[in-house]
């Protein structure tokens, strides 16, 4: 389960397009679609490249799990069942160092709610969800 007390994350349900991504997460690897024609990363997974429009040049590329905290807010009154028992809980946007145009969500395990160091570097970790599927998470580099 999550390292954040009380948190029960809904488990992602893979489909044909996203299965390689989620399988890699279960191997504790972060892979993104890369259009080899445009050298452009895509996240979340897409049917086709948002630059050239082609679906023929996608390859899964493992990325280095380093990023920075862009902005954050604090969830205090969630509509989502698995979060009500964990709130208040951070909700941050992480930009990927390899391509800051790619961003991820994070609850920043290990960072007290509201005490988020905006701009700080973060590194990739993985957390378990309600279904056992691992998801990518981020924690502040100490």
């Amino acid at each position: 389960m999550s390292t954040i007390p009380g948190l029960e994350r809904p488990g992602p349900v893979p489909n044909d397009m996203t299965r390689p991504f989620w399988d890699a997460c279960n191997e504790r690897r972060l892979v993104l679609q890369n259009c080899t024609a445009c050298q452009r990363l895509h996240y979340p997974p897409a049917q086709r490249c948002d630059q050239c429009g082609s679906a023929d040049n996608f390859q899964w590329k493992e990325v280095e799990g380093k990023g920075h905290i862009d902005v954050y807010m604090v969830i205090r009154d969630s509509r989502i069942r698995g979060f009500r028992s964990a709130q208040p809980i951070n909700f941050a946007v992480i930009t990927l160092d390899e391509d800051p145009g790619i961003n991820f969500l994070s609850n920043l395990p290990g960072t007290p709610p509201g005490e988020v160091p905006v701009g700080a570097p973060v590194e990739l970790i993985f957390e378990e969800t309600s279904t056992g599927q691992l998801v990518h998470e981020w924690q502040v580099v100490t």
Binding site: P10, G11, V13, G82, T129, S130, T131, V135
Partner: peptide, 12 residues
């Protein structure tokens, strides 16, 4: 307990 479709990348 599940996050299907596009919500898989946001709901968790």
């Amino acid at each position: 307990d599940e996050a299907p479709g596009p919500s898989a990348f946001t709901l968790p």
